[in-house]
Structure formats: structure tokens, C-alpha cells
Computed example of a mutant assay.
Amino acid sequence: MGRESGRSGAWLVLYAIVWVALLVAWVPFAVDPRDNTTGAWLIGAALAWTVGWGALLGYRRAWGPIGLSVPVGAGLLTAGAAVAVALDPRTGADAPDGESGPGAVLLGAGLLTLLGSALLLALGAGAGLAVRALRGRR
């Protein structure tokens, strides 16, 4: 049993590292308007991986790591948005009239990413619990 839990723990760490990497990998592509497709694919992969991460943790009933993953995911996405806004020449003092400044953008991004992270992780955790329940019935 100890050997299995060690391997399982290593997979959890690897899965978490890939999740964190995907959450920040889109930032360079958000700043470069010539390559939006790659950034969109990376964001999609990060969203799917977030649901998968929640499912894995939900299956294992690891509620503490799910609770920790919500602010970590939101923080990384908001930090990525902050970097993208800071590097984007169209924001700040040069923003066209009628557009929000960087502060409003980051406040909105922070709130949305917190809510989005919670929802995606909860969706995954629910799926993980459902799979666990179905496997237990056999």
C-alpha cells in the first residue's frame, strides 16, 4: 500500500506542476496580437486541465488541496493578466477613451478568475466524486 501511495503522490505533484505551467503559459501570447491562436489553445488546455485537476482531487476526496487550488489558480491567472496588461501598449495612459484602465481590468480579472477557478474545480470535483461512486457500486 505504501508503494502505491508514493507513486500516486508523485503523479499528483506532476499533475499540479503541469496545471501551474498551463495557467501562466498563455501570457506571452496574450501580449503578441499576431499569435492569438496559440494563446487561445493554451487557455483552453489550462481550463480543461483545471477541471481534470478538480476531478482527480475530488475522486481522492482531497478537499484541502481543492480549497488551496482555488486561490492559487486565481492568483496565477490574475498575475498573468497583470503582466499582459503591463506589457500591452494599448493600456494605461495610452488607453483610448471609454476603455477601462489597468486597475479596473485587473480587479475584474481577479474576481472572475476566483469565481472561474472555484467553478471549474467544483465541476471537476463533482465528476470525480461521481466516478468514485460509480466505481464503488460494482
Rank of each mutant, 00 (worst) to 15 (best):
R90A: 15
Y59W: 12
T113Y: 04
V70P: 00
V31D: 13
R34C: 08
L106I: 04
A81M: 05
D32T: 10
V24M: 10
G67E: 08
A81K: 02
A21I: 07
A93T: 11
L68K: 05
P28N: 10
V85Q: 04
G67Y: 08
V105A: 03
L76I: 01
L23Q: 08
G73I: 03
G75Q: 04
V51P: 07
L77K: 00
A25W: 06
L114R: 06
A104W: 10
L22W: 02
V20F: 03
W63Y: 13
E99T: 13
L114Q: 06
L68P: 03
P71K: 07
A40Y: 11
V72A: 14
W26V: 06
A95T: 12
G108F: 02
D88E: 12
L112E: 02
P28W: 11
A45F: 09
I66W: 05
A45D: 09
S100P: 06
G39L: 06
Y59V: 06
G98H: 05
T38M: 14
L23V: 00
G101R: 07
L106K: 01
V70N: 00
L57K: 02
N36A: 15
A109I: 00
G110W: 00
A16G: 08
A93N: 14
L42S: 02
S100V: 11
A46Y: 03
A55Q: 04
W49R: 04
P89W: 12
L115W: 11
W26Y: 10
D32H: 08
V85H: 04
A95Q: 12
G101H: 12
G110E: 05
V51N: 06
T50G: 04
L56S: 11
T91Y: 15
L23A: 10
P89R: 08
G110I: 02
A25D: 03
R34H: 15
L56E: 13
V85D: 07
G103A: 15
W53E: 01
V20H: 01
D94G: 11
E99C: 10
A84N: 06
V24E: 04
A48R: 03
G98A: 10
V72S: 01
T38K: 05
G54A: 13
G44D: 07
V51D: 05
L114E: 03
G80E: 02
G80C: 12
L107I: 14
V31S: 08
R60D: 14
A21W: 12
F29P: 06
G64M: 15
A46H: 00
V20Q: 01
W41N: 09
V51S: 08
G108C: 02
V70S: 00
E99H: 13
V72G: 05
A21P: 04
I43Y: 01
L77N: 01
W19K: 04
R34P: 06
W49V: 07
L42Y: 09
T38D: 09
G39K: 02
G92K: 10
V70Y: 01
A95N: 06
D32A: 14
V72Q: 06
D35C: 08
P28C: 13
A46G: 11
P89G: 10
G58I: 13
A30L: 04
S117I: 05
L115E: 09
N36H: 13
A46Q: 00
W19M: 02
P102S: 15
L76G: 00
W53Q: 14
T37H: 13
G116W: 07
L57R: 08
T113V: 03
T91Q: 13
G75A: 07
W63C: 10
